[in-house]
C-alpha cells in the first residue's frame, strides 16, 4: 500500500445523505474478478445525469459527502472505484462501519468531521471549485481557506497508513501467539 501522509487537492461536494455502496458501485460491476478498473463504474447510475456533481467537477481528489456515507453492502469494490477514479480521501459526518474499515485497508482516507464543518467545506468548494483542500494525516487535520478542523484516527492506524504497511504482514509477526491460541480452542468447535 502507498503511504498516506498529507494530500492536497480539489474537492467535489456530494450533497446526499445515506449514500449506500450499491450507489457507489452498482452490483453489476461486482462480477469482475480483478481489483482494478472500477473507476468507470463509480456512481455509474447517477453519472447518467449531466448535472451530477462528478460530471460538473473534474479532477477532484477529495469527496465531501453527507451523513451515513458507504452504508449497506460490504463490497470493497466501492473503495476500489473511488480510488481508481482518483479520490484519496472522503469526508463525511458519519460512515458505514464496513466501508470505513475497507477504506483504511485500501489507501482511501475516511475523514469524519462534524456536519457543520462538512457543510462549510461544501459551501467553499461549490463557490470556488479550484479551492484546495488539504487532508493532513500527520496532524490529523483538514484545512481549506478559512477552515481548519481536526479529526480522530487511532494512533496505530495512522502509523500504519503513514508507513504504508501491509496489515497481514504486521499480523504474521504474531504467528507464535496465533498458534498458541489455536492449541487451547475447545474441541467441540466445528471443522468443515
Amino acid at each position: 500500500m502507498d503511504p498516506f501522509t498529507t494530500h492536497t487537492g480539489t474537492a467535489a461536494a456530494l450533497r446526499r445523505n445515506d449514500v449506500d455502496t450499491d450507489q457507489i458501485i452498482p452490483s453489476d460491476w461486482l462480477k469482475r474478478v480483478q481489483r482494478t478498473g472500477f473507476g468507470e463504474g463509480l456512481f455509474s447510475e447517477w453519472r447518467q445525469d449531466p448535472s451530477f456533481v462528478l460530471n460538473r467537477v473534474q479532477g477532484a481528489s477529495v469527496l465531501l459527502a453527507g451523513e451515513d456515507f458507504g452504508t449497506g453492502s460490504s463490497r470493497e469494490h466501492a473503495v476500489w472505484a473511488l480510488t481508481d477514479f482518483g479520490f484519496r480521501a472522503v469526508v463525511s459526518p458519519r460512515f458505514g462501519d464496513i466501508f470505513r474499515s475497507n477504506s483504511l485497508k485500501g489507501g482511501l482516507l475516511p475523514v469524519q468531521l462534524p456536519s457543520d464543518v462538512v457543510a462549510a467545506l461544501m459551501d467553499l468548494v461549490e463557490a470556488d471549485p479550484a479551492a484546495p483542500v488539504t487532508v493532513d494525516l500527520g496532524a490529523r487535520e483538514v484545512r481549506a481557506e478559512g477552515i481548519a478542523a481536526s479529526f480522530e484516527l487511532d494512533d496505530f492506524t495512522r502509523w500504519r497508513l503513514m508507513e504504508g504497511l501491509d496489515d497481514i504482514g504486521l499480523t504474521l509477526r504474531h504467528e507464535a501467539e496465533i498458534s498458541a491460541f489455536e492449541q487451547q480452542r475447545p474441541a467441540f468447535l466445528p471443522h468443515v
Binding site: E76, N102, G106, D167
Partner: peptide
C-alpha cells in the same frame, strides 16, 4: 459480521 475483501485475505 461482514468484512471487505482485504479482510477476507487477512
Amino acid at each position: 459480521f461482514g468484512i471487505g475483501t482485504s479482510e477476507v485475505e487477512h
